[in-house]
């Protein structure tokens, strides 16, 4: 008698499980599994060290004093140089690195500003792409405008390469590569026409 009641109950329960309930259950299970795996992916790489060696060099450094009309009519210092960057970033990749955003920054102090940071060059490396950076004598990707006339005769402009790690899911850490270049600017402006 008891068994019969239980069997009946199970049958009714099964009938009550409509297509919607099943679909919902499947979706919910899938979602929670994905969420758990994503979290594990994030947690397993959270404490990773993303540092590596970089070698940077600069050549053909000249300085101009011209107006940047987008900002104002005043004349600003414009640094022009060619850069070499060498680094093997292959070891930085793991299962939670979707992309590296590399950027070369010039950092210096000037009369107008306590801190200036100007990104001169950048590159996106996606997972699976060649991660060996070897650029030689390349012109800057972005203009090196100073905020004023702070580059003339400047002897201590630091060039360094950093990367922003874009994960599949997780934090977005920024790391600075080991190895910088100290850039010095001439103490005279050039009057020559220069190719950027």
């Amino acid at each position: 008698m008891n068994l019969l009641v239980i069997a009946l109950k199970i049958l009714i329960d099964l009938a009550m499980h409509t297509a919607f309930a099943r679909l919902n259950a499947v979706c919910a299970f899938n979602l929670s599994t994905l969420a758990a795996l994503t979290f594990l992916c994030f947690a397993s790489t959270f404490f990773n060290d993303y540092n590596t060696q970089v070698s940077i060099n600069a050549a053909n450094v000249v300085l101009k004093n011209v107006p940047d009309y987008i900002v104002s009519r005043e004349k600003n210092d414009l640094g022009i140089l060619k850069i070499d960057v060498t680094s093997d970033l292959e070891p930085l990749f793991n299962w939670n690195v979707k992309q590296l955003f590399l950027y070369l920054t010039a950092e210096y102090e000037s009369k107008n500003n306590k801190l200036n940071q100007v990104v001169l060059w950048d590159k996106i490396i996606k997972r699976g792409e060649k991660a060996l950076i070897k650029i030689k004598n390349e012109p800057l990707k972005y203009y090196f405008w100073d905020d004023g006339n702070g580059l003339l005769g400047h002897k201590n402009v630091t060039l360094y390469l950093s990367w922003n790690i874009i994960p599949n899911a997780g934090t977005l850490p920024r790391w600075v590569g080991t190895g910088t270049h100290r850039l010095t600017f001439p103490s005279e402006y050039t009057q020559m026409r220069t190719n950027f």
Binding site: N112, N113, K114, L115, N116, Q117, V118, V119, Y142, D147
Partner: peptide, 10 residues
Amino acid sequence: HRVIKVHEKD
């Protein structure tokens, strides 16, 4: 978007 230039005063 990403910051590409910073000028910070004293």
